[in-house]
Design a protein around this nucleic acid. Sequence first.
RNA 1: GGGCCCGUGGCUUAGCAUGGAUAAAGCACCGGCCUUCUAAGCCGGGGAUCGCGGGUUCAAAUCCCGCCGGGUCCGCCA
Length: 557
Amino acid sequence: MFRQFRSDVLKALEGFSFKAESFVKESEHADLACTVAFKLAREEKKRPQEVAEEIVSQLKIESDYIGSVEVVNGYINFFASYEFIEDTINYILDSDENYGSLNLGGDVLIEHTSANPDGPLHIGHIRNSIIGDTLARIFEKAGVDVTTHYYVNDMGRQVALTVLGIEMFGFEDEKPDHAVAKAYVAINRYMDEHPEKKEEIEAKVEELMSRYEEGDEEVSRLFRSVVEKALEGAGETLKNLNVTHDEYVWESRFVRNGYVDRIISMLEEKGLIQKDNAWTVDLSNFGYDKNVVIRRENGTTLYVTRDLAYHLWKNENFERFINILGSDHKLIGNQLSDILKIIGLKPPEIVFFEFVSLPEGSMSTRKGKFISADELIEKVYREAYEIIREREFSEEQKREVARAVAIAALRYDFIRVSPEKPITFDWKKALDFERQTASYIQYSHARACSILRKAVGNGMPYLEFAGELCTPQERKLVMLLSKFSTAVERVIRELRPNVFADYVMDVAIAFNDFYTSHPVLKAEKEIRMHRLAIVDACRIVLRNGLELLGIEPLERM
RNA sequence: GGGCCCGUGGCUUAGCAUGGAUAAAGCACCGGCCUUCUAAGCCGGGGAUCGCGGGUUCAAAUCCCGCCGGGUCCGCCA
């Protein structure tokens, strides 16, 4: 709805010598403010206030949604009309679960998580998952046909090492991804402690990798078994976080289906490959110091080669493709994009996020130095359960609520931070529910549900919003509600889902403000109906917003 | 050494894209509010030269240059 208001304001400002779009912005002093007078004042050698007044006197307002316009200190302030806020509430109530949707169309492939199958997901990986999954939900809401992929690095050295690790140290009976990590850590430790064996193991690794790439049956079975175990565990973790993938795409697929050969011949045709011992692509014209190796001396391919093939496939199947990657992939990611551009393919849009590190330093699966997502989930869950232990819920309800609150806290904690900011993980903060902003939002939603439940119980659930009954707080709240799709749009444009987390939070704050100062059930006829409409609209916005964040909107807590 | 990212009250962050009206939240701290729709809440208070220095501009947390501090990458690993 706010998008409509904005476009009406822009339309009213058409026909002047400036591009209204670049001067109209949201403001705390108005619903929309235009700052163009400052710019023009200089050119015309007048005071901004004069210029602004002149513009306003020439304004052609045809929209019913623009209630008033005023000039303050050179700012042109636009205010929405009663009609606008009435339409907003009615539109929200009518659209219900569809409120906030856009109709962008098209399709997008979102590749996220894609952690190496050498152990369980740790708290760095799930930052990736949460950004990717939230983005996927928001694209879906925007009317884009979304497919999500987990790209599985099944041909990597780690898998070969793990195969050897299991051979030497066995496979423990526990959650399979954790068992995989034990074998992987064990063989790495063994190599550190027995440097004399290192060469022998490396030779075996190389042989395993070659045989897997050739499609050797026996080796394939070993690799598959390791990868499937790791993936089985990761999938379970992701499901607990409300994250799902449409497909797990194994990189070996692109070796087997000819895409790797195709991408190599495309590069050859452009004369980009230097065939020394290994094959490399020269990117010195693009500012890279070193060539990118795409084929080893022994004839096997590298991660980047298969990734190029994967992106050839993406080019053939999707309009847009977005990858969520840790910032340590920046160099290789940019190299990949530049190579694709050279051969006339579209590069992926990449969302880089900075590391999640521990107070004592960065994590490493290889060294077994990490906090697994499972452990985090379990501890946060237990903490959440403690808080509701005394409530009058059944045991099953308590578990459900604790789970929903725990996952909400986790997801919100990761998503609220801008991707480019590094995070230092802190147990104390992760488990401190006093500062868990997600449960605050869930709580606001539950409060709204509670009022509506009681209204129905009293037999007077009739809703009738009336713009002229609005207090300033109510007006402010409704204006915020109208901005749902503006927030969705912004996430799509900037690929930064944290701005949406902020939006939902703002709605919750405004709702709680309204809640404590505006009695609903106790109010008289019209006011009661009017406020019930606001409560229901807030309920819808909070519920839809939480769902986009992958958080369960509880009705009681 | 080079590239990229980060640096905002004591702590964690938002705002930076497209410069604009007293820099916004949470935690922590201080003081209030449960016979009234869920106190996982609300209200009030103290606390910030927006890392430092320059520049552009009527106007800079936001743009430009330099510096400092932290992170990260620079493998025939992924």
